[in-house]
Design a protein around this nucleic acid. Sequence first.
DNA 1: TCTGGGGTCCTAGGACCC
DNA 2: TCTGGGGTCCTAGGACCC
Length: 420
Amino acid sequence: MTAFALIDGNSFYCSCERVFDPKLESRPVIVLSNNDGCAVARTNEAKALGIRMGAPYFKIRSLCEREGVVALSSNYALYGDMSRRMNEIYETFSPRTEVYSIDETFLDVTDVPPGDRMPWAKDLSATIRRWTGIPTCVGIGPTKTLAKLANKAAKKLSDGVLDLTDPDERARVMANFPIGDVWGVGPANQIKLGSIGIAFADQMRDLDPRRARELMTVVGERIVYELNGQPCLPLEDVPAVRKGCAVTRSFGERVTTKLAMEQAVAGYATRLGEKLRRHGLATDHVTVFMHTSRFADNEPQRNVSMTVDLPEATNDTLQLIKASRRAVDQLWRSGYRYSKAGIITDDLVRPADRQRALFDTLDQDKASKIMQALDEANRRWGRATVFPAAMGVTRTAFSTKFERRSPRYTTRWEELPQCR
DNA sequence: TCTGGGGTCCTAGGACCC
DNA sequence: TCTGGGGTCCTAGGACCC
């Protein structure tokens, strides 16, 4: 019988910050999204103050100041590095793992005898705590959906570990488990299920799969089977090839000039090129969009996008910039205060498989050597050591704001924590 | 003044074909 | 009077995830 474990970091971003700044221990802490916009991670102390996931910071700022909540900008270099360390340790606990998100990993525990699973999970969690400083929860079940459910239920337990392999234990937990907390049931489907009287996980488990399909397509049908202990979702231990890639940002300050927009979008195109090359992928079209703030409903609104085709698939930054600049030329209208722009691609291909242009006007090999040199320089000396002039040379007002960022303790020598 | 940034999968419906 | 009957492919939009 297959069995899955799901381990995740508690208030992960906040816990990363606490590892390197012990003063944050037992204090309420939140981590903010880009531009210090919204709360995206909260410690239990912050949740207890009523701070909701996604709450805009400007709306909770006075509460935070009054209650002594520490609000930090996000520090993705730190969180990504901590995540990588944790995943290295997981691999010593299971032969097969699936990294599901920056702070969640599924582990195949089929070969751990049922009676040993609780001690195994406690050992896993304790080892992660000891070696990385991050507190975690572990849930175990016969399907991924049930492992997710067990993990969520484990958050309420003192040791943060719950094994729902046993059907009776499972039924008891599911009878009190809100349907909206089930993996795959979002707000829209929660309303649909509520309308036929389904409020808890055990009720969906007992729903006719055909009825679930009518209501929520095949996705709902799978959830019913998974809640019954029949796996529909395999462990994806070989990461799938990425299908799309996007770079989008809200501006630190509204953009009102075409030059600023061109520079911002050139920067996104540069970042897109880096991401494509790191994954060994290329694209033959890019979609550029720009829009004003939908919250500023007293201002004139504009929300436009345009797709530009490239002669052949590429991940060359200079070509991506050229294509996206053509889109900006077409889309730009003065008189608006733009709040966000971005570049999106899909249908990614491996460069070797790409469709060659009929008339090959570009020397792809030469371009690829330039990009290799660029990536190497930026890898060695830090991002944006070498960058295209189209991005502009000053750190401009539209750049994303991180006014409360902690040091990059583990990935920059000059920001290493110090003992005195 | 101030509201994130990515991803995936599924389906309906239109375009097009014979 | 009566106006076919399938297929496939593509795209936009919705829903979900973290």
